[in-house]
Simulated scan of single mutants.
Amino acid sequence: MATPNNAPVQLSREQVRLLLFYEHRSGSSTRHAADRINNLMGADTVTHATAVRWFQKFRRGEVEFKDSPHSGRPQAVDEDELLALVKEDPRQSSRCLASKLGHSHSTINRALHDLGFSWKQPIWVPHVLSDFQRQMRANVAASLLSERRTKTWLSNLITGDEKWTLYVNYHRGRQWLKPGESGVPTPKQELHPKKVLLCIWWSVEGPVHWELLPTNTTVTADLYCKQLTRVAEKIKGKMDRVYFLHDNARPHVAKVTHQKIQELGWTTLAHPPYSPDMAPTDYHLFRSLTHFLDGKQFQNEDHLKTELQSFFDSKPREFYRKGIEQLPIRWQYIVDNNGAYYVD
C-alpha cells in the first residue's frame, strides 16, 4: 500500500480501520499497531488512542469499518421548518426551537440570523382589540380619508388632551457596573405621588393654549367647555375653519360639550375608542414630553410650569407639523391592516 519512495499515503477512515483490524488479527499490541501503520503510511496516520478504541471494538466482535449513522443532531437546518415554527409563535426562544428541530442552540441562532431575524422585545399596544373594535377603527379611518378637503386642511386642525404630570420623575436606566456591584439604587414611585393635570391644545404651529389644573382637580364637562372657550379666544381670526380632534373621554363627549363645539362652529373629527395611535397628542407630543420629564424633579408648580414652557418653546414648528401630518398615513395603515394598531 506504500508508494515506492515511502511517501505518505492519504488513507480514508475505512482503510485505516482495515489496517488496524489486520494488526489486531496478527496479534499486535495497540502501540505496535499504531507505530507500524505510521511508519508505513506516514506519520500521524493513526493515533494510539484510536488504535485502542478500535481494538476494543474488534474484541467485542464489531467489525464494521464504515461510520455508523449518527443519532444526534443533524448538521443542516431545515429553513422551511424553522420559518414555520417562528411564524406559528415568534415568542419561542432559540433554545426552544433548537429542542424542537434537534439542533444546537448556536446553530439555530446562526440560522435565524442568516434569515434576517433578531430577538427583540415586542411593542406594547394599548388594548386587546375585539373584531368589532378593529372594524370600527377601520371604518372611521376610511371615513376620514374619504372626506373631500383642501390639501392644507390639516393646518386648521386643533387637537389636545390631558396628562398627569409628576413632580418627581425617577429615572431607571442602565449603569456600568463591575461583577458584584448593585449600582445606584432607584426608588419605586410612590403609590400616590404628587402630581398635577396638564391640559393642552395645539396645532401645526405649536401650542395654542395649555394650563395646569389646581391640585386634586380633574376635568368635568363644564370645566372642559370653559377651556374650549379659552382655546377659541386664542385662535380667533387665525383660522377660517376649525377641525377639532379629541378622544372619547366622558367630558369630551358629554352633551354640553357637544353643544359648546357646535356653538363655536368647529367640525369634530370622529375618533374611535382605544385609539391613542390616532391621536397626535398621545403618539407624538406626550411621547416626547415623557422623555423630557424623565429623571426631573420639581420643587413647586412654578418650577414645573417653567420647565414645561421650556419644553414647548424648544420644539421647532416642524416638530408640531410632523405630528399632525402623520394622521393620513396612520389612517391609511389602519384601513390596510383591518383596524390593527399603528406601531412605530
Rank of each mutant, 00 (worst) to 15 (best):
S155P: 00
K87R: 13
Q309I: 04
R174G: 01
N169K: 06
D114N: 12
H291M: 08
Q92V: 12
D67S: 05
G173F: 02
S275K: 03
R13I: 14
P122L: 08
E205W: 07
A51R: 01
A51E: 00
L308H: 00
S203W: 06
A254P: 04
P4I: 11
K236F: 14
Q92M: 15
A33N: 03
I37Y: 01
P90A: 11
D89P: 00
K194S: 12
Q189F: 09
K236C: 13
G72Y: 01
T257F: 07
S155M: 07
E162I: 15
G116S: 05
H32K: 09
Y283T: 06
M278L: 15
E211A: 07
Q15A: 09
G183D: 05
Y170S: 07
E318R: 00
V231I: 11
L293Q: 02
F311N: 03
S146C: 06
P187W: 08
Y243F: 15
S146E: 14
M41K: 02
T50Q: 07
P276W: 07
Q297E: 15
N38W: 06
F132W: 14
H127A: 03
T229D: 14
P74C: 11
D240H: 07
W202F: 15
G183I: 13
V253G: 00
P126H: 09
T217H: 13
M1C: 00
C199L: 15
L197S: 12
P4W: 13
I235E: 01
W176S: 02
H24Q: 04
L115Y: 00
K100I: 14
E62W: 07
N39A: 15
P179S: 04
D114S: 11
Q297G: 05
L289W: 06
I108F: 01
V168Y: 13
